[in-house]
Amino acid sequence: MASIIISSDSSLTAARVADTIVDKAGFSIVNRGILPEVAERYKTGEDLLSKALDSPSGFLAMSPKIRQRYMAYIQAVTLEKLLPDNVVCFGLGAHLYAKGVSHFLKVRILTQPEQLVKELHPAGPVPAHKVSKMIARHEKDRTRWSRDVYGRDETNANLYDLVISLNQIEEKEAVKIITKTAANRQFVPMTYSLNCVKEFILASQVRAKLIERFPECRVRADGENMVIHIQALKRNQKKYASLVKEVAGTVPGVKHVEVHVITDFIGQAVESSR
């Protein structure tokens, strides 16, 4: 059966819905519980990973580059956990990077404003006139975060298969809708979609290994073959290409590595910023 990826403006709501689905429909859960494993595998601190996931973007915040790196670690492990089906996943940004897999049901849940405000400001009641401001700010933060790290806006409904507003539909009903949709035949995993996930995992793992040294690297997996783009000065081209090949080769499952070195990155930057 399908795997469900939940995204919500309120992480508590996402967690609650996910838990209910696990209870009712016999899914297993992937959530921030995996962060210690990520931290251990990639030798970083769990707090940094949490920070990369949560702290708002901004002038003094963690730079997008660093954030992308931690997210690459999280992504590699999360996708691995998503390989077996019947999984509910939330709170790991999976809705932004697990794309194009037919058996992933992506759900966006919109919380009631009161709920969200309580979560954002647990200390006490918030004056009515500040509520909308607070929510708008939160939304802006998340939009900016998702843009910084993945170049897309997580509030965009196009990212999802299902968008449910808890303003209109009760949480219990929402859970029913989600599990019912997940049981639809079109979300049944198949060889093609499972292969997609496998390729995804491989690419993410290779990228996680490379990203500290090559923050601009782009990795694509095609079966057991990797196609990697990095940026380097012309004189370092050969050296780095073989380095990348070596590093990527250490990831289990990788058979063949093809490295493309982009030497004209200023030109590239000009091109892409046009």
Binding site: Q75, Y150, G151, A203, R207, V219, R220, H229, Q268, S272
Partner: peptide, 13 residues
């Protein structure tokens, strides 16, 4: 699979 938003890779020369 792309692990990053893909950019069109326009050839320079």
């Amino acid at each position: 699979m792309m692990s990053q938003p893909s950019k069109a890779n326009a050839e320079g020369p």
